[in-house]
Simulated assay, not measured.
Amino acid sequence: MNPETSLSEDDLRGIVWQVWTAYLHCTPEVEDSAEPMPDTADVTASVGVAGAWNGLAVIRCGLPAAGEIAGAMLDIDPANANPDDCTDALGELVNILAGNVKSLLPKPSHLSLPQVVLGRAKVVWPGTTPLHTLRATINAEPTILGVLRGDPKPT
């Protein structure tokens, strides 16, 4: 557990399991990611947290996983999920994830609106450090989920 927050890796694992089962209607395989969060992906969705604790909740995945997520959340055939469907679904999913993470953080903290980058792009967040990174699947398609902590400003 990180001394600055009560959010443990087990907490994040539980949040992912609850969100996947409730909103994606599947049981995810969740494992620690031995590799750091990649800085490129087909889809990157994030929500910022600001207040007593600063950081981000992030989901990164390939287009097949984005289609599976859109299919589950919007009740459509994943093969027919268009870019707007994927953007909407990933934005909502990361918002739900961030809201659950926020509930375990010091108060008061506030969430930003979700930001979703669709298309292979390098997306980085300067001034952050990875706190927890997990790999979860939806119908065998991998996603990377992370919580990044904002680095304190030097005094």
Rank of each mutant, 00 (worst) to 15 (best):
L105R: 04
W53K: 06
K102M: 13
A70K: 04
E35Y: 05
D10G: 12
A57D: 06
Q115K: 09
P106D: 13
Q18Y: 11
S103A: 15
D75P: 00
E35M: 10
T137I: 02
H110C: 04
L12D: 02
A65L: 06
T155A: 12
G55Q: 07
R60P: 02
K122W: 04
A70N: 03
P106W: 08
E31S: 15
W17H: 10
R135G: 08
P152F: 11
E29S: 07
P36K: 08
L93T: 01
I69W: 05
C86R: 05
L12E: 06
G119N: 11
P152S: 12
G150C: 07
D88L: 12
V123K: 01
C26Y: 08
L118M: 10
V30R: 01
L111S: 03
I15M: 14
L105Y: 03
H25Y: 15
A72H: 08
K102Y: 03
E31M: 09
L24H: 04
A79G: 15
T129C: 00
R149W: 01
A41M: 01
A79L: 05
G99L: 07
K122F: 03
D77R: 11
V47C: 15
A22P: 00
P126E: 12
P114A: 14
S8R: 01
T5V: 13
L93N: 12
M37A: 13
S8G: 14
V101M: 07
S46G: 05
A81E: 08
P126M: 09
L131I: 02
N80A: 14
P130D: 09
S112T: 15
T155P: 10
A66R: 05
G51P: 01
S46Q: 07
P3M: 01
V58H: 04
V123G: 01
L104H: 13
E35P: 03
A72W: 08
G91M: 04
G119F: 12
V116W: 00
V101A: 04
H132Q: 07
P106T: 06
P38G: 13
